[in-house]
């Protein structure tokens, strides 16, 4: 099949960008979307043009490196699938595709379809962990964890940190990403000691990074390649509101660590 691509090209973070048109010829339906771009890039190099920069690594849908908008949908049309696992059999001959980078103030474009997602790391650094000194842990079976809790925790922990939820959200909120981590750790007994600190600090970091606010419309859930439900955002809201209420007026008592 042959396709027409409209791709966002931008030399670097400071340069202005624009959409450019490319032809993708003789695309096999067994190719992955990124393999199709590989072929386009080989062609561009042969024509002494600059290849399209896009992020990718594992190409099996788990590392979270890849991701861009395909016709306005994060990771393209197939639900629960990263763009590296999206195959060309889902497209029709002659289709026009618009490829754009994730757009958010918190995700500055570095080049073409590559954005800086360092903000997500900083959200984790703000509290997305359980503090446990190496070697100090009790036996693995010392604290039993109900299977239901472990399952919900795992549902949330499946997040690959690709940023599709931010890209799909009309408000560029990172609520699903943050909610997933808060739910992952908050549902396990091991995560209880820092639960309220985590919910306060991670949400505060969201604002410092200029992510938007959640308006509960659910675009993130639909875009998530791991199909993490927005229930995780409700869990974050719960933990955060509870923690905010419990620590209200703690200013004078000189809170802190």
């Amino acid at each position: 099949m042959n396709l027409t691509l409209h791709v966002w090209r931008q030399a670097n973070a400071a340069a202005p960008g624009r959409m450019e048109r490319y032809d993708a010829r003789n695309v096999s339906e067994d190719m992955s979307f990124l393999e199709m771009l590989d072929v386009v890039n080989e062609q561009l190099i042969a024509e002494s043009k600059e290849p399209i920069a896009f992020e990718h690594d594992c190409r099996e849908g788990i590392c979270g490196s890849c991701g861009f908008m395909v016709n306005g949908v994060a990771h393209g049309p197939q639900r629960g699938t990263t763009v590296c696992q999206l195959h060309m059999r889902h497209f029709k001959d002659g289709e026009e595709l618009y490829l754009e980078p994730w757009r958010a103030t918190a995700f500055p474009v570095l080049k073409d379809l590559v954005v800086d997602r360092g903000a997500l790391d900083r959200i984790i650094a703000a509290g997305g962990y359980v503090s446990v000194r190496t070697g100090s842990a009790p036996d693995g079976n010392a604290i039993s964890v109900p299977k239901e809790a472990a399952d919900i925790s795992m549902d949330a922990a499946a997040c690959i940190g690709c940023g599709a939820c931010v890209a799909a959200c009309p408000n560029a909120a990172a609520a699903l990403f943050t909610g997933a981590k808060i739910s992952h750790l908050g549902t396990l007994p091991q995560g209880q000691a820092e639960r309220s600190r985590r919910a306060l600090r991670m949400v505060e970091q969201l604002s410092l990074e200029d992510f938007g606010a959640c308006t509960n419309i659910g675009e993130c859930e639909a875009a998530c390649p791991k199909q993490i439900p927005i229930e995780m955002i409700a869990r974050m809201n719960h933990d955060h509101l509870k923690a905010a209420w419990q620590t209200r007026g703690a200013r004078k008592s000189g809170g802190g660590e």
Binding site: T134, A137, N141, I143, H184, Q190
Partner: peptide
């Protein structure tokens, strides 16, 4: 043996049996 203990304490959601054990 220590690795499992460490990872459980970090909140790695290992599969569990109904009784709550790993």
């Amino acid at each position: 043996v220590n690795i499992i203990d460490q990872c459980v304490a970090q909140g790695v959601p290992f599969a569990r049996e109904y009784g709550g054990a790993l």
